[in-house]
Nucleic acid binder design. Structure first.
Lengths: 338, 338
DNA sequence: TTGTAAGCGTTATCAT
DNA sequence: ATGATAACGCTTACAA
């Protein structure tokens, strides 16, 4: 019925190869593993037979025996966010080259889903975990308790109290720069869509914003700090409030929330950037395509992913800071009649 | 040194629980697996001890023993494309609920990477594979040879000759509708950015485009069919050529290529939609945000992912067609003056 | 250079 | 209801 008999039985084992060759599984294992303690002839014979029989190694068995796997788990809030999918891309890039595969979990910003994902990864005895926690996530202690001794690299959204490698953006410096830019463009009442204060990244951005104001002699006004989820809808609401509050600019700690704010401004007939300046955060693809194009504090997600992967591979436990880069586009650039 | 001794040794096994309780691993296994053939008291004792010792099951061992895993591999060209990350999201949604986890691989449109990914998944003895092949991918036969008897669900970009479940968009109907829309908006010389003819999805879109033209009595003109990669740059080039060729509209089989075409039109001072209509494919987020906003043939990636996952779970081998939906925005909507 | 044998942690079969 | 035992496929001392 079936021409290539070997391929059909599907699950060829090293024992099958061994018996076919009249040798033992150990030798086959060694030959296939590139162990030098095996005759050149034998190795060739084994390799040929393996190919002929369509052998594919069973990494499950191999992992069990070796007590380790070549899978790295990546846990992110949502994979369809460009920022995160690029982080994943960068990490995968480095990890694949090092012989690792990647198991991706998304938490959809749910703390319970995060716990479940971490537990699942632990149960697979993954070699390590790269984590960016859900916005309202549990404490660092809890993560550590689930993960036990599994190596952990945190990125972007990190628990500062949790030991181990961390890759973070230069949030404070970046927000400082973004806010200074708005000031230098002669905006004077600058509010901020600050994000969730449960996450260190947003705390730092707020700090940078505040620092910029104060260094320019502008008093910090908590009434125009909008602590919100950084999605389009909440950005829209913050935009409305900022208008009410007499703001003429907003620094948003997110990109989609900046978009929402611009929705509100357009709706109210307020011109951007002439009457109102907006700078967002994260260089999502749409930011350069919308009208007015959105000035934004670009992160380097691909590099962040690469850095996280390298930190895992190196077993590092330090904190690496990835610079941010202010990309000035239309939404914050007043015409030059200064 | 360490307070919670159990948590520190990290790898508690059912044998540890068994000895701690003075029973055998078999009983512990049964208790944990919810096997009814175990006394209620014992079950409770085991569960408590397991919790107390911080036991986490070793799914690697379990998988090896059971000869199957609860991992489903998903292979896509690039995860950062919204279309694919939404497919993944939909599939993950369904699969997680069914107790499966998802191993994601991206091929970056490279046939070799695809082979490697499939082989890796096979080596992990995944329960199944959901695949959207790289644009210049190998033949269906080759896929089947690598995967052996591993269940396969193809989606979006499928090999028609390969047996098994397929989830596809209504490409022909959709492209027909998109092109008819351009015709009804009184565009008359309509070109197309057709994509790679090595992929069935694009072949079908081209067929739909052609069908629409012919049904409207417009001759099909191969000289304004631009078979290209559907990225922004090639879209730009196609846009330039379409202008040269005297077109007044383009149906693009991709979204980014439509964007590129509009780049070219803007550069040449040609007004969209007044002088030139454009419809793209795939409802990427940016399409609604750009100016002019891009009319596009929306797919339903999330639903496609769900359908693929369900097809896997059901062991189905039929072809399911996910409808497409024309979203008319500015880029193809001429002002209403007759 | 190769074979023998034990074991990774779990589950399934067969006894008891 | 529980225990003993083997097995999943692979790796690795240790022995030969």
């Amino acid at each position: 019925m079936c021409k290539r008999l070997y391929l059909c039985s599907d699950m060829v084992t090293i024992t099958d190869i061994a018996t076919a060759l009249g040798i033992t599984p150990s030798t086959v294992s060694r030959a296939l593993a590139g162990n030098p303690r095996v005759k050149e002839d034998t190795r060739r014979a084994v390799e040929e037979k393996a190919r002929e029989m369509g052998y594919e190694p069973n990494v499950v068995a191999s992992n069990l025996r070796k007590g380790q796997s070549r899978i790295v788990g990546i846990v992110v809030p949502r994979i369809h966010r460009e920022f995160f999918s690029n982080v994943i891309g960068g990490a995968e890039n480095v990890l694949n080259q090092a012989g690792y595969n990647v198991l991706i979990c998304q938490t959809l910003e749910s703390a319970e889903a995060e716990v479940k994902a971490l537990r699942t990864l632990k149960n697979y005895r993954v070699a390590g975990v790269l984590l960016s926690h859900a916005i309202n996530s549990l404490s660092g202690n809890h993560v550590r308790e689930i993960l036990g001794t599994t190596p952990l690299v945190q990125f972007d959204r990190v628990f500062p109290d949790l030991p181990g490698a961390k890759i973070v953006g230069a949030n404070c410096e970046g927000a400082f720069q973004a806010t200074m830019h708005l000031i230098s463009e002669r905006y004077r009442r600058i509010g901020t869509i600050a994000g969730y204060m449960s996450s260190q990244a947003y705390v730092e951005r707020l700090a940078g914003y505040r620092l910029a104001l104060e260094s320019a002699g502008i008093p910090y006004d908590p009434s125009i700090v909008y602590e919100n989820a950084i999605v389009r809808e909440t950005g829209y609401e913050a935009g409305l409030k900022a208008i009410e509050a007499g703001c003429d600019a907003l620094y948003s700690a997110g990109a989609f929330s900046a978009l929402g704010a611009i929705d509100a401004l357009k709706e109210k007939g307020i011109r951007v950037p002439e009457d109102f300046g907006v700078v967002g955060t994260s260089n999502e693809g749409f930011t350069s395509l919308m009208t007015p194009s959105l000035s934004t504090l670009g992160q380097h997600p691909f590099e962040m992913g690469e850095a996280a992967a390298r930190a895992f591979l190196a077993g590092s436990s330090g904190t690496e800071v990835i610079p941010m880069e202010l990309i000035v586009r239309q939404s914050s650039k007043r015409s030059n009649n200064g």
